[in-house]
Design a protein around this nucleic acid. Structure first.
Length: 564
RNA sequence: GGGCUCGUGGCUUAGCUUGGAUAUAGCGCCGGGCUUCUAACCCGGAUGUCGAGGGUUCGAAUCCCUCCGGGCCCGCCA
């Protein structure tokens, strides 16, 4: 609705400019506290036409022609600004559109296949609080892109050729696997113990090298051991992701590209490039022309491949089956991903769009699965759930155990997801327990609560036989009502911008603002006890709010509860 | 040392790509509101040299340069 409104403003303004004998390539449209949409185009035209912005603005304003039934009510010239205000038609049609489209309201009609790779943590232990920043950003983006109309496939790239997995395999052969623990945690125990031993007793190192070599040549017994180790770890990782409402459509094993010969083909192709040179028996690509000083090694002197080589083959393969590739990567991958992109570019292959997120560190420093220094996602979720449980017990003492458990679970998942997604990815953060278990106002519980309140009104209305089969959105004239409707109308714009700019935090902000608008409406505008001429329309607006709150929460992967 | 990136009230944070009207919001602090659809709510108040300095511009949190501080990276690891 907002996008159509903006289009109308854009064409009305373009026409007015032409009629005024002016011309601008950028209309400088913006949302503003002074209007629904505002244009500062007069500033840009002032020097060219040698008049003051105010004079230009008045000249443009004189030529603004608004058609009947437009989403624009009026335009005002306020100093150098031209302000556009939304019409009643816009508000009324927004209400009708929400009720018609329901769970699809806000969806856009982009098309094409997107492969979005996220998380891809090494299967050597549980997901920790840094990994789930990747998961939450990736999963939320996938949900945003789906709403934007894309056919999205999420992939988890399993790095099974790296030394760390060989260490896990070696560890499983030499240390006890604690079957009473959650499997990914038990794998981490083995991995940590194995690493410690490998540092203390250097003589075991060749054993790990041998395992790696056996795996690279495809020895069947070794392959079985790797599969067992990885499946075990992944089972636990997937349990954690399931709990967080995150799932992957496909799990792609790095080794697949070695086995199919794609990695070999890729190495041969890269070797033929002018930028590639042979040095001490290893092949490396010079990337100076891409602004990267360090040459990238694509084949070791013993002829084997490296992580980046296999990643090149993976991206080449991905490109054949989609229109857009998006990778969610931690800040430690900045250089490697720009090297990857540079080589793909030189080869004339499609480059991925990369979303980089900064590190989550602990007060004492950065995390490391290998050293056993990390806070697992499971541990975080459990602690937050405890805090949520005590909160619901305090706030709803009349409820039973089952209700409290259920609420504590969806509140804690929501709180963790929201807390991660609300901050823009390029911000480095330091984890703090006190902050993590604190139920910040206007976080996820705030939005879930607004949804529960809307459901409550709808339920009470139903009990009293109040319906909104017949209503007139035109009677929704209170400030809180029009503000709320405008907010509802903005959902598609939030999806559109978030999808174009790959910024999931925009949806977090939008959801909070919508809940805010609903809560103000709730406080000041009675529904069930309202006069009959308002009752049905207000109830319809509550239903609209419920729908869009649910859609926004769904986009964030957060449960929209009927009661809490 | 080099590259990338971040720096916004006591704390957390939006806005920066595409420069425009009083810089966003929350926590915390001070004060007010439940016989009224769930108070996990609402209303009001105090708190800012937008890291520092310079430049571009009619106009800079936003663009450019220098510096300071934090983070990440710089391996024939992944």
């Amino acid at each position: 609705m907002f996008l159509k409104f903006k289009d109308e403003v854009s064409s009305v303004l373009t026409k007015a400019l032409t009629d005024a004998g002016l011309e601008a390539d950028d209309l400088a449209l913006d949302e503003s506290p002074h209007a629904d949409i505002s244009s500062s185009v007069a500033f840009r035209l002032a020097p060219k036409f040698k008049k003051s912005p105010k004079q230009i603005c008045e000249a443009i304003h004189k030529h603004v022609k608004i058609l009947p039934d437009s989403y624009i009510d009026r335009a005002e010239a306020t100093g150098p600004y031209i302000n556009f205000f939304a019409s009643r038609t816009y508000l009324n049609e927004t209400v009708l559109r929400v009720l018609l489209d329901r769970e699809n309201f806000g969806n856009l009609n982009n098309s094409g296949k997107v492969i979005l790779e996220h998380t891809s943590a090494n299967p050597d232990g549980p997901l920790h609080i840094g990994h789930i920043r990747n998961s939450v950003i990736g999963d939320t983006l996938a949900r945003i892109l789906k709403r934007a109309g894309y056919d999205v496939e999420t992939q988890y790239y399993i790095n099974d050729m790296g030394r760390q997995i060989a260490v896990v395999v070696w560890g499983l052969m030499n240390f006890k696997f604690d079957a009473t623990k959650k499997k990914d945690h038990a794998i981490a125990d083995v991995y940590i113990a194995a690493n410690k031993t490998l540092v203390d007793e250097k003589e075991h190192s060749p054993e790990v090298d041998a395992i790696m070599k056996q795996y690279e040549i495809g020895d069947s017994d070794t392959k079985r051991k790797f599969k067992n180790a990885i499946d075990t770890a992944m089972e636990g990782i997937e349990q954690t992701q399931d709990r967080m409402n995150i799932h992957h459509d496909k799990f792609v094993w790095e080794s697949q590209f070695v086995r199919t010969g794609d990695v070999k083909k890729m190495m041969d192709r890269v070797k033929k490039l002018e930028n590639t040179m042979l040095k001490d028996g290893a092949f490396m690509v010079d990337l100076k022309e891409a602004g990267i000083e360090k040459p990238l090694v694509i084949q070791r002197s013993d002829g084997t491949s490296l992580y980046t080589t296999r990643d090149l083959a993976y991206h080449e393969w991905k490109a054949t089956q989609c229109d857009r590739m998006i990778d969610i990567l931690g800040a430690d991958h900045k250089l490697i991903s720009s090297q990857l992109k540079a080589v793909l570019r030189i080869l004339g292959l499609r480059e991925p769009e990369v979303v980089i997120f900064e590190f989550v560190s602990l007060p004492e420093g950065s995390m490391s699965t290998r050293r056993g220094v990390f806070i697992s996602a499971d541990e975080l979720l459990d602690e937050v759930k405890k805090a949520a449980y005590s909160e619901v017990s305090k706030k709803r003492p009349e409820t039973d155990e089952e209700f409290r458990q259920k609420v504590a679970e969806f509140v804690s998942i929501g709180a963790v997801r929201y807390d991660i997604v609300r901050v823009s990815p390029e911000k480095a953060t330091t984890f703090d327990w006190a902050e993590a278990v604190d139920f910040e106002k206007q976080g996820s519980p705030f939005i879930q609560y607004a949804h529960a309140r809307a459901c409550s009104i709808i339920k009470n209305a139903k009990d009293e036989g109040i319906t909104f089969e017949e209503f007139d959105a035109g009677v929704l004239l209170e400030d809180q009502e029009t503000a709320l409707i405008k907010k509802l109308a903005g959902f598609e714009n939030a999806i559109d911008t978030a999808a174009r700019e790959l910024k999931p935090n925009l949806i977090a902000i939008y959801a909070r603002e919508l809940a805010d608008a609903f809560n103000q409406f709730y406080r000041y505008v009675p529904v069930i006890s309202a006069e009959p001429e308002f009752r049905a329309s207000r109830l319809a607006l509550v239903e609209c709010s419920r729908i869009v709150l649910a859609n926004a929460l769904d986009t964030l992967g957060i449960v929209a509860p009927e009661s809490m």
